[in-house]
Nucleic acid binder design. Structure first.
Length: 131
DNA sequence: GCATTGACGAAGG
DNA sequence: CCCTTCGCCAATG
């Protein structure tokens, strides 16, 4: 049971042929995002900081863009910007999907912004803190 | 190969 | 308090 090829086919973040690199950063981002519990949210910067590259928060956003092709699916709707705003909602299937998903998890959204953002904030550096 | 863009964020004016 | 600039790194033109 060592067919291995299957996972390779499923893990292409962006361009299947172009992605021949380690995809370590992208996979790391996906992994962290998948750890976000329902009803909680985090920010691009927090994920970047947890990965040790807090200055690369934009890359987290770019990784999210590629997350649409990742498997298993990444709950990208639980990632917002530092301001708690749903800046990525336009990248979902519908403009209201992100907000709707959040509301379905009990999160209140007002004017494209997370209500009680800091209260619901899920900091990987804190929640996944070792020791 | 350089310029522009981008689901960010911090700092400066 | 609002707007602009810079830094980061990858993709796209």
């Amino acid at each position: 049971m060592k067919h291995k090829s299957k996972s390779t086919l499923l893990k292409q973040p962006v361009k299947p042929q172009k992605i021949k690199r380690k995809d370590s950063f992208f996979e790391s981002v996906y992994d962290v995002v998948r750890l976000i519990p329902p009803g909680r949210i985090t920010s691009y910067g927090a994920i970047a900081a947890y990965l040790g590259t807090k200055l690369s928060a934009r890359m987290v956003g770019w990784a999210m863009n590629a997350a649409g092709t990742a498997f298993p699916p990444v709950p990208a709707h639980r990632v917002v910007n530092r301001n708690g705003m749903l800046t990525g909602k336009h990248h979902f299937a519908t403009p209201t999907l992100m907000e709707d998903l959040l509301k379905s998890e009990g999160i209140k959204v007002k004017k494209d912004t997370i209500v009680h953002f800091e209260q619901l904030f899920w900091d990987p550096s804190r929640e996944l803190e070792t020791g």
